[in-house]
């Protein structure tokens, strides 16, 4: 099944799949950042694969000079009972990725959460507001350079 997924994708997008990794029958693909929406669209609408559900979408801060952030897409195909993981790299200077909420609307809140925690912006997202933190909060708490106890005075408390 994993080889079939790779072959079908490579036939369609010869340059988009940069790397593949298999661990205990779980397939992870590294996708070219610019091509994520078109790959996702194909994965969802292809009759053989039919990855019709986005289980999770999250960010990772690798804290390295090149390609600091990753966005991870966990997909599931109800038809094939098969999981698939996609990863893309995001630069620190220009943390903008195309939204996949146009493909699966379930990605809407996941992308908002990723934006809230890592500051990765999703281009074309219908409503990219913060998810957990107050809207006027200026930092991104799950970045590795954010201190555990927060930035002093960044979150106002009511006066006693």
């Amino acid at each position: 099944m994993n080889q079939e997924i790779i072959q079908r994708l490579k036939a369609q997008f010869p340059d988009s799949i940069e790397e593949s990794d298999e661990f205990r029958d779980d397939l992870t693909l590294r996708v070219k950042t610019e091509d994520i929406v078109k790959v996702c669209n194909f994965l969802k609408n292809d009759h053989e694969l039919a990855f019709d559900m986005i289980v999770d979408l999250c960010g990772v801060d690798m804290y390295r000079p090149e390609g600091r952030f990753e966005v991870v897409y966990n997909l599931y195909s109800l038809k094939k009972k098969k999981y698939l993981r996609l990863k893309i790299l995001v630069d620190e200077d220009n943390p903008i990725v195309d939204t996949v909420s146009v493909v699966w609307s379930g990605a809407n809140w996941h992308e908002r959460e990723t934006y809230d925690m890592y500051g990765i912006k999703f281009k074309g997202h219908p409503d990219l507001r913060r998810m957990y933190m107050p809207e006027d909060f200026e930092y991104f708490p799950l970045r590795k350079d954010f201190p555990l106890m927060g930035i002093p005075d960044s979150l106002p408390l009511p006066r006693k």
């Binding site: 106890m149 927060g150 930035i151 002093p152 005075d153 979150l155 106002p156 408390l157 009511p158 006066r159 006693k160």
Partner: peptide, 13 residues
């Protein structure tokens, strides 16, 4: 207590 006392004050976490 003063009303609307939710802005301004802060704490060092």
């Amino acid at each position: 207590p003063e009303t609307g006392a939710t802005e301004g004050a802060s704490t060092s976490a």
